[in-house]
């Protein structure tokens, strides 16, 4: 469904991605783990052309999108939940959700809203509250809900557990799994929290210095000694 082929990306002189090849199949949860600065977020952002891939191609549904406009890519069925949530703080929860559906058929709006309520009952209770007054976990749910309002074919989550309390982290991962199992949503998940991410992922990739150094099913990676040594043993205490 989504295919990166030998993708390179630069920030000025910094070579952030060095020939990444990966794919996401329909109905999968694919996770991307790696340390800070490994290029995880860059990998996700190049999908939207920020920064553009300097070499290689990114294709979505069989079409090369690496030269498309950012807004066209986002409208083509890829919904990104950006790192750090980026909700519209001074707008109401409802308006935030409305922004998510800004390019979809208004006829779906009510049904989609009901679906979001079902998934995140807390959002329904807070509907008219200013989004900035929600707690961090609620904001993350709002960000996910907002992305889902656009009826994406692939949901991309950039560090959804960042800065959340353990209870919320668990809840967020449960929601991601549920989305995939119940609705068949294809999900690409970038995470530092390797343990949680690999547990719910069908497949995973490990990124290091802009290169994929390891890949396999979630279970394989969880069991792999390299992954354990680099990402799990230390994070287990965190």
């Amino acid at each position: 469904m989504l295919q990166y082929t030998d993708v390179h990306a630069h920030y000025g002189a910094i070579h952030a991605l060095r020939g990444v090849t990966l794919d996401v199949q329909e109905g999968e949860i694919v996770t991307l783990i790696g340390a800070n600065g490994a290029g995880k977020s860059t990998l996700m952002n190049t999908l939207f052309g920020k920064p553009r891939a300097s070499a290689g191609s990114i294709s979505f549904l069989g079409q090369d999108i690496s030269r498309h406009h950012t807004h066209d890519i986002a409208r083509s069925g890829l919904a990104l939940v950006p790192e750090g949530r980026h909700i519209f703080a001074r707008m109401s929860v409802l308006e935030n959700l409305q922004m998510g559906s800004i390019f979809s058929d208004p006829a779906h709006f009510d049904a989609d809203l009901q679906r979001i309520y079902g998934m995140f009952p807390i959002l329904q209770q807070r509907l008219e509250q200013r989004a900035g007054t929600l707690s961090g976990g609620e904001q993350q749910m709002l960000a996910i809900g907002r992305a889902l309002m656009s009826r994406p074919k692939v949901l991309l989550l950039d560090e959804p557990s960042l800065g959340l309390a353990p209870l919320y982290i668990k809840q967020v991962f449960n929601i991601i799994r549920e989305l995939n199992e119940r609705d068949g949503m294809t999900i690409m998940l970038v995470e530092q929290n390797a343990h949680h991410a690999l547990r719910i992922a069908h497949r995973g990739y490990v990124l290091q210095h802009g290169e994929i150094v390891l890949s396999g099913t979630g279970k394989e990676l969880l069991a792999s000694p390299e992954v354990r040594a680099a990402y799990l043993e230390s994070s287990a205490h965190a």
């Binding site: 919904a79 980026h86 703080a89 707008m91 390019f103």
Partner: peptide
């Protein structure tokens, strides 16, 4: 209308607007 909402959304967060497919 969407355009008015989009103005406010751009004021709040440009990154999110781009992620939602808005032409900022």
């Amino acid at each position: 209308l969407p355009v008015g909402l989009a103005w406010e959304a751009v004021r709040e967060d440009e990154v999110a607007c781009k992620a939602l497919g808005m032409n900022v």
